[in-house]
C-alpha cells in the first residue's frame, strides 16, 4: 500500500525516451469506484492530467508511462472530479449518520489498481470501501 503523501512529488518517466515528463502533484479520486482515476502532474510540457489507465507502473521511486503523449488535459469525466471541491485531503469526514469523524490527513491506496484502501484521519482511520461521496463540504463515509 502507498500513501498520497509518499507518492506526491514522485517523478513521472517515459519508458520510450527515458525522459522525465512530469511530477505527481495531486490525485483525482472517483468516490463511485472508490479509486484513483487520474493523477494531476506539474512540470509537464502539455496538459497536466495522467489517467490511471495510462500509467504503466506506479513504482516506489518513479511512475512510468509509455510516452509523454499520455499526459493530456483530461476528459470531461476526469475534470469533473478535479478541483478543490473534490479533493479528499484536508476535508472533514462525516459518517452517513451525520456524525463528524475527523479530518482526512492522508489517503492509502493500492499502487497496482488505484483502489483507495483507507482514509487516514487525525484520530484513526476508516476503510476505503466505506467511501460514499466527496463534496465541497465533506467526505461522506458509510456507517453501520
Amino acid at each position: 500500500m502507498m500513501r498520497f503523501s509518499d507518492a506526491s512529488g514522485r517523478k513521472v518517466v517515459s519508458t520510450s525516451t527515458a525522459d522525465r515528463v512530469g511530477r505527481v502533484d495531486e490525485f483525482i479520486v472517483d468516490p463511485k469506484t472508490r479509486s484513483v482515476v487520474a493523477v494531476e502532474l506539474k512540470k509537464t510540457e502539455n496538459g497536466n492530467t495522467l489517467r490511471w489507465s495510462d500509467i504503466t507502473a506506479f513504482g516506489a521511486d518513479a511512475v512510468t508511462v509509455t510516452g509523454a503523449e499520455k499526459i493530456t488535459d483530461g476528459g470531461d469525466d476526469v475534470t469533473a472530479l478535479a478541483g478543490k471541491d473534490h479533493r479528499v485531503l484536508g476535508k472533514r469526514v462525516l459518517s452517513s449518520k451525520g456524525d463528524e469523524l475527523g479530518k482526512v490527513k492522508d489517503v492509502e491506496f493500492d499502487p497496482e489498481s488505484g483502489a483507495v484502501t483507507a482514509l487516514i484521519l487525525d484520530n484513526g482511520q476508516v476503510e476505503g470501501s466505506t467511501l460514499v461521496g466527496v463534496g465541497s463540504y465533506a467526505v461522506v463515509v458509510h456507517a453501520e
Binding site: 462525516l94 461521496g133 463534496g135 465541497s136 463540504y137 461522506v140
Partner: peptide
C-alpha cells in the same frame, strides 16, 4: 446544523 448530501455537498 448543515444539511449535507451523501455526495458531501452542504445544500
Amino acid at each position: 446544523r448543515p444539511v449535507v448530501t451523501m455526495a458531501g455537498e452542504d445544500v
